[in-house]
């Protein structure tokens, strides 16, 4: 599992507003890539275009190509619903389904897509919860509501839910920004393990986090408010943090930004 993502000159629009301009990048399979940059620079918007979640917002559209192992996500016959089964997503705030139990939350993607076999679902739930390092904490209360867990547990529940549908790529939009440091540490450990199976892309405002978890880092910036965001540079995380090629990257990382 884990596919290569190849983005070619991608422009993202909301209505007539150009939000992100001309991004090209290659994301290697089974690696962790971090997107960093100031608020409003379009990194979350760009992340959403990798599984077409930006189309949920009215007027959201792109120009350019996103190839997943040579298959264009924006091809004429491609169903956005199918794209999202291949490219999963974890959000900023934990969002378990409040009407469902812990086990039902994990298997929601499968059940809502027609899997009915109880045995298969139970196995999937255990495997995914183990995969999200949550099994030991919840195995005795699988039928309790998912909303009863702590914030960090809820976020790992959401990760379990995302990996239960066996995606190739896992997108994470600031997955730790609503969590305390201990829960953050657990999620970061989990990201480290997830990259054995998945291609992981993570947006973060926390530069230490980017340095800790990612293999590659992409720095996004915008010239001024109201102007489109764009990719400044993307390189090995080591290089970005120690010896970036661009002045803007160095300024941002060393806190001399703005």
């Amino acid at each position: 599992m884990g596919k290569r993502i190849d983005v070619q000159d991608l422009h993202v629009y909301y209505g007539s507003f150009l939000a992100v301009e001309g991004v090209s990048m290659t994301i290697e399979p089974r690696s962790v890539t971090a997107f960093i940059g100031p608020s409003g620079c379009g990194k979350s918007t760009f992340l959403k275009t990798l599984n077409r979640m930006h189309e949920v917002t009215p007027g959201g559209r792109v120009e350019g190509k996103v190839l997943l192992d040579d298959e264009d996500l924006y091809g004429a016959n491609v169903d956005p619903v199918a794209v999202r089964r291949t490219v999963g997503m974890v959000f900023q705030r934990p969002n378990p389904f409040p009407t469902m139990s812990i086990a039902d939350n994990v298997t929601a993607g499968l059940r809502l897509n027609g899997v009915k076999d109880k045995k298969v679902l139970a196995e999937k739930a255990e495997k995914s919860l183990r995969g999200a390092n949550l099994w030991d904490e919840v195995k005795d209360r699988l039928n309790k509501p998912g909303a009863g867990l702590s914030g960090g547990q809820q976020q790992r529940l959401c990760i379990a839910r995302a990996i239960a549908v066996e995606p190739q790529v896992l997108l994470m939009d600031e997955p730790c920004s609503a969590l305390d440091p201990i829960s953050t540490g657990k999620v970061e450990d989990l990201i480290e393990e997830l990259k054995d199976d998945y291609t992981v892309v993570i947006v973060t405002h926390n530069m230490q986090q980017a340095a800790r978890v990612s293999d590659k880092t992409a720095f996004f910036n915008l010239k001024e408010t109201g102007k489109p965001g764009h990719l400044i540079e993307m390189d090995d995380t080591q290089k970005i943090f120690n010896n970036p090629s661009e002045r803007a990257t160095e300024d941002y990382i060393s806190g001399r930004f703005g």
């Binding site: 389904f97 993607g109 897509n113």
Partner: peptide, 12 residues
């Protein structure tokens, strides 16, 4: 967020 969570799982 709940609608987004469901869409992101590939649910129509």
């Amino acid at each position: 967020e709940l609608r987004d969570a469901s869409y992101a799982l590939g649910v129509p």
